[in-house]
Structure formats: structure tokens, C-alpha cells
């Protein structure tokens, strides 16, 4: 039973990857394939249930829910993905530096990492986005500046271990510089864990972006955004649940597939001892 459990965690996340590929394809190709306009209101067709002409019904302003959900995919998923990649990059670089430097610079970097880690990310992004003006750039910048510490904290011990290994020591003795050693020895050790963490954080970033949209801050209407669509659909939840179901399901599917991929990429946890009762 225990080795079966260990093997299950090393399986490639087919379902998650497939789902993610489907979502990505929909986001990229969808708007071109759909004929309905996600922005143009048509009050004569407001609040229609799914069926017939409107596959997923219409929202309070008569716009096709399907078209809006698909159109919002690019924005929400794009921002979440970009945020994940940028935070992973920033955090990994800081982690690698912390691992390879010594003395005071390392202590400073560690202190910086811990301090930023303690910053309430959503609060800062909220305040910054509302006060500095909404828009993709501000939200992205806010997310990147506040969410990078976990990557640094993940990368540093792994990189240090890799740099202390005999191969890295040999490189050092042979005269190779820091950049080479980081690329050759530290990077393979951290690549997979960082990728796993980035996938797991993708869901969190998506939820944050949706929360901002839900609160009416940042990415403003009429640009479709999943969280904002949920906020608009709430008053009509009883009569027209499809208006909330579509964006909520979209967020759910995207987050779930990213989490599955992230967990699949992560190293298997230590297997239970053979003496374990099963």
C-alpha cells in the first residue's frame, strides 16, 4: 500500500495538464470562434437562460455569458500566469543569490525575504491598485512585488545544497565563475520544485485577481473579468444561476487544473516505512 501511494505521486498529471490545455486553447482561440460580442449590451435580451441562441444564457445587460466568460479568460488567466512566472523568476533569482553570496549580503537578502513575506499581499495590491489607478500593470506589479518570497525561501536551501556538492566544488576549484556554477549545478536542483510551486501559486494568483475584480477594484468594467462577472451576477443568483455559474466554474477549473499540475510536479513525499500497518 505504501509504495503504491508513493508511485501515485510520481504519475504525470494527465488530467490536470489536459484540462489546462483545453482552457488555454479556449482562451486563445475562443473569442475568434464565437460570434456574440462580449461588450455590446442588448437590453432586450437581458437575463435569458441557457438554450437556443445563447449557449450559456445572457447577463443582466444582455451580453452572452459564454462570450464574456471566454473573453475574460485571456485577461484573468493571462494576468495570473504572468504574475506566476514573474514572481517565480524574481524569487528564484533572489534565492540563488542568497545561496551563493555570504556574510552580510546573505543576511540582508534573508531579512528582506522574511520582511516581504510578512507583508499582507492582497491588502497592498488593493491599496496600490485603487490609489495608483487600476489596470493590468499595477495589479501585476503589486502581485510580483509581494509574492516572490516563497520562491526565494524554496530555492535557497536547495541551491545551497547543490553548491556544496562535490561537483560544484570541483567547478569552483577549476575556476568557473558564479554564474556558471549557478546555471550548471544549482538550476537543475531547483527547476522542478520552483515549477511546481509556480503552478500551485497560479491558482492563488487567479483567486486574488478575481477577488479584486469582485471588489470592483483594478480591472474595471466593461472589460469582462471573472470575479467582476460574479459580483454582477450575485443579485440575480436565484432566478438566473447560470450567470454566476459560468465564471465561477471557469475560475474553479483553472485553479484546479493548475493545482493538479503543481502537485504532479512536486517531489513525492517520503514514503511510509514498510513496518507501517496498512
Amino acid at each position: 500500500m505504501s509504495h503504491r501511494h508513493g508511485a501515485a505521486h510520481r504519475r504525470f498529471p494527465w488530467f490536470g495538464a489536459g484540462l489546462a490545455a483545453l482552457l488555454a486553447a479556449t482562451a486563445l482561440a475562443g473569442p475568434a470562434l464565437l460570434t456574440a460580442d462580449p461588450l455590446e449590451p442588448d437590453l432586450m435580451a437581458a437575463g435569458l437562460p441557457p438554450g437556443g441562441e445563447w449557449l450559456l444564457g445572457t447577463d443582466p445587460l444582455g451580453r452572452s455569458v459564454l462570450a464574456r466568460t471566454v473573453a475574460a479568460a485571456r485577461l484573468s488567466l493571462g494576468v495570473a500566469l504572468a504574475a506566476s512566472l514573474a514572481t517565480a523568476l524574481l524569487g528564484t533569482v533572489v534565492g540563488l543569490l542568497t545561496a551563493s553570496l555570504g556574510g552580510m549580503p546573505r543576511r540582508l537578502l534573508r531579512g528582506l525575504t522574511e520582511t516581504v513575506y510578512a507583508c499582507p499581499a492582497l491588502l497592498l495590491v488593493l491599496v496600490a491598485t485603487e490609489l495608483l489607478g487600476g489596470g493590468v500593470g499595477t495589479v501585476l506589479l503589486g502581485l510580483v512585488l509581494t509574492r516572490w518570497p516563497p520562491y526565494a525561501q524554496l530555492a535557497e536551501p536547495l541551491a545551497r545544497g547543490a553548491l556544496a556538492a562535490p561537483e560544484a566544488e570541483a567547478s569552483l576549484l577549476l575556476g568557473f565563475g558564479r554564474a556558471y556554477r549557478l546555471r550548471r549545478h544549482a538550476w537543475p536542483a531547483i527547476a522542478r520544485p520552483v515549477a511546481s510551486l509556480a503552478a500551485l501559486h497560479l491558482g492563488g494568483n487567479l483567486l486574488t485577481v478575481s477577488a479584486l475584480g469582485f471588489l470592483g477594484i483594478g480591472l474595471l468594467p466593461p472589460r469582462p473579468e471573472w470575479g467582476a462577472m460574479i459580483a454582477e451576477a450575485l443579485p440575480y443568483l436565484q432566478e438566473a444561476p447560470h450567470m454566476l455559474a459560468a465564471p465561477a466554474a471557469a475560475i474553479f477549473l483553472a485553479t484546479w487544473s493548475a493545482t493538479l499540475i503543481g502537485e504532479g510536479l512536486a517531489r513525492a513525499p517520503a514514503p511510509a516505512l514498510p513496518l507501517e500497518e496498512t
Binding site: 491558482g203 483567486l207 478575481s210 477577488a211 469582485f214 470575479g227 460574479i230 459580483a231 454566476l244 465564471p247 465561477a248 475560475i251 474553479f252 477549473l253 485553479t255 484546479w256 493545482t259
Partner: peptide, 9 residues
């Protein structure tokens, strides 16, 4: 499943 659902929804 629960972690993937937006709490406000």
C-alpha cells in the same frame, strides 16, 4: 476541490 473554488462565489 474546495481550495479551487473562489470563496466569494
Amino acid at each position: 476541490l474546495l481550495a479551487s473554488a473562489p470563496s466569494f462565489a
